[in-house]
Amino acid sequence: MNYTYEYARAALTVDCVIFGFDGERMQLLFIKRALAPYQGTWALPGGFVHVDESLDDAAKRELQEETGLTDVFLEQLYTFGQLGRDPRERVVSVAYFALVNRFSHTLQAATDAADARWFAMQELPVLAFDHAHIVEVALARLRGKLRYEPIGFELLPKKFRLSQLQALYEAVLGQTLDKRNFRKKVLGYDLLIPLEETQRDGAHRPAQLFRFDTKRYQQLKKKGFSFEL
């Protein structure tokens, strides 16, 4: 298919903000750029959209090519089109974000990515382009959604301790939560299935494991149920 335009036009890219959780701290996935501009600098996985693919397909392709991650549910975040955000040309970027269980995926950098690595939220490297701003917007979206949707369970193992769940919420929200109140509220929704399994939590005695009841949540959601913490 041929395209002919009379006027100059902006290039279109996608960027992916991928959140993970190591059991204690929130983490973000970045790639080290192998090409100019910003060669050798860490950046969000992403790249230019092909003329024969959708935005969603472009985001999935770039994520797989640069990090090796597949089967990741990407949600569109925001469109960034400030002037001067890319030294090469006028570029508009559609950003996506996702929550993944980082231990279920193996990283493998390829194409124009020299490396792919997880970084703790408190130890983020200097980022290329305006990617630091994109991360800020994604974190604000994550904090907002976490308060009314049980999306945090996507970051945890299928079987988890309540202490792991609380640690996740504290890491995302950046605040300490009262242990008794948190557990009372979480268990009160009747969305956690108690398992006949335990797991040792550091030097403490073994703690019971739970599993999130996805089916029950979807049924309640259709009835207007709201998960708020």
Rank of each mutant, 00 (worst) to 15 (best):
N2W: 04
Y3C: 14
T4V: 12
A8P: 13
R9I: 10
L12V: 11
V17Q: 01
G20L: 04
F21N: 02
R25D: 14
M26R: 12
M26I: 14
L29V: 05
L29M: 08
Y38F: 15
Q39S: 09
Q39A: 08
G40H: 02
T41Q: 08
T41C: 03
A43I: 01
A43P: 03
V51D: 13
E53G: 04
E53V: 03
L55W: 00
D57R: 08
D57E: 15
R61C: 02
L63K: 09
Q64A: 13
E66H: 07
T67W: 03
T67R: 10
L69W: 00
L74Q: 04
E75D: 13
Q76P: 09
L77S: 06
Y78L: 13
G81F: 07
G84I: 13
P87C: 07
V94A: 03
A95G: 11
A95Y: 12
Y96S: 08
A98S: 15
V100G: 10
R102Q: 15
A116L: 08
A116D: 04
R117N: 09
W118M: 04
F119T: 12
F119E: 11
A120C: 08
M121Y: 11
Q122M: 04
L124T: 05
L124E: 06
V126E: 12
L127G: 01
A128R: 00
F129K: 00
H133N: 08
V135E: 01
R141D: 02
K145L: 15
P150G: 04
G152S: 02
P157A: 12
R161E: 07
R161T: 05
R161P: 03
Q164D: 02
Q164C: 10
Q166A: 05
A167G: 01
A167Y: 08
L168C: 03
V172L: 05
L173S: 12
G174Y: 00
G174F: 05
T176W: 06
R180P: 06
F182T: 06
V186D: 05
L187R: 07
D190W: 06
L191V: 07
L191K: 04
L192E: 06
P194R: 03
L195A: 07
E196A: 13
T198Y: 10
G202K: 09
A203I: 13
A203V: 12
P206C: 11
A207S: 07
Q208K: 07
F210H: 06
F212Q: 03
T214N: 09
K215W: 11
K215N: 12
K215P: 00
R216G: 01
Y217I: 01
Q218I: 05
K222R: 15
G224S: 12
G224W: 00
F227A: 07
F227Q: 08
